[in-house]
Amino acid sequence: MESNIKDVARLANVSISTVSRVMNMPEKVAIETRVKVQEAMKELNYTPNALARGLIYKRTKSLGVLIPDISNMFYSEMLHGMEHAAQRHHYNLILCNTDNNKARMLESLNMLKEKQIDGLVFTSEPVYPDYYEVFKKLQIPIVLAATHSLEFDIPSVKVNDEQASFDAAECLIKHGHRRIGMICGSITDNVTAMPRLQGFLRALRVHDLETDVDSQVQFGGYKFEDGYEAMGQLLRKFPDITAVFASSDERALGAISYLHEHGKSVPEDISVIGFDNLRLAQMSIPKLTTVGQPLYQIGYLAVEKLDHLIQNEHVGELRTYVRHELVERQSVARR
């Protein structure tokens, strides 16, 4: 006959709530009691399921994670950090790929609600007012990772995109470049694209360089092929360009590919700097100079912050900005 939580409590001579606490929050149970309960579970060959773990505290020890595009290399390292933090706090992650589709996102949220998740990590996308209304109906803690909301008081973890982009552009300027273009994200993206554009333009203004968005900036998607296409468009309207800031590594690698196929050498003819520091940045030829985001740390801190909310503990600062880093490799040369 299969053992249950009552059998464990009886054998360990503790209450059912103590057994549940050992499974949910072992760090809050005296070590002698914890060992006694764990030995009873082992002797009875008892494997707790999600319902048993949530019997007392009405928690499933499950967290939902919404990813807009699982094929994007950006998310793997961030998910790595989330997973390690979740393991530390004894949570399971339920990953949902929304494919940048609002209908799929709403379906995912409904599914996660049915799963009775304890909290949600929402990544990268802006939080629009209609999203926020859906979030409120979930009635669970939510943390934003690699995005934030200045309109709504939702805890978040990300880099300072404006300053990071300023540093990227200034790196090119300090290498002697004066004719600098930018491959940017969508003009409708106020979370990352617009702050990165503002940082780029601020660097040009600080150093008294030309700032003509129409000729110097090409907007588009975030994938490799978008960067490839944008580089061609940028060259056509800004032919004497000597350096490019691409606001993601995928865009940067797409730009390098276009330049190589059209007889331009990187960095001898045109220097390229990216943003993210994905693993592929050091695998490309030439190896990509880029602004590094601590993606693992962003994921880890997002789950840490979410756990504080679930435990009704003080979350600290509402919007956490983590430090970025300029990673200099081989794709930027002195002019």
Rank of each mutant, 00 (worst) to 15 (best):
Q282K: 15
K264M: 07
Q198N: 15
D7I: 03
Y296I: 04
H308D: 06
L318D: 01
F135M: 11
I16S: 00
T242R: 01
I142V: 12
P26D: 07
L44Q: 07
F152W: 06
P48N: 07
D240W: 01
G232T: 11
R202V: 07
P126D: 12
F200S: 05
N45D: 00
V272Q: 03
M78H: 06
V121D: 02
D118A: 04
R10Y: 04
V217A: 09
E77T: 10
K58W: 02
A52I: 02
G227L: 04
L138C: 06
R196E: 10
R88Y: 03
G274W: 01
L150T: 05
E268M: 11
P286N: 02
S257N: 09
I140Y: 10
E328C: 09
C96N: 03
D118S: 14
K305H: 04
D269Q: 07
E39T: 15
T289E: 06
L253N: 00
I241P: 06
T188R: 14
E151G: 09
E210V: 08
E162S: 13
L79F: 07
T192M: 12
L201I: 08
S248P: 08
P195I: 12
Y296M: 11
S215I: 02
M78C: 08
M111L: 09
D226N: 14
S284G: 11
H90G: 07
P26Y: 06
Y228P: 05
R334N: 02
D276K: 02
M1C: 02
S17T: 09
E325Q: 09
L66W: 01
V315A: 10
A52M: 12
F135N: 12
V127I: 14
P239C: 13
P239T: 10
R236K: 15
N100W: 00
S265P: 03
K137Y: 00
E250H: 07
I241T: 09
V127W: 02
P26H: 03
V22K: 05
E304K: 13
R334T: 00
L278D: 08
V272N: 00
Q218S: 15
H308L: 11
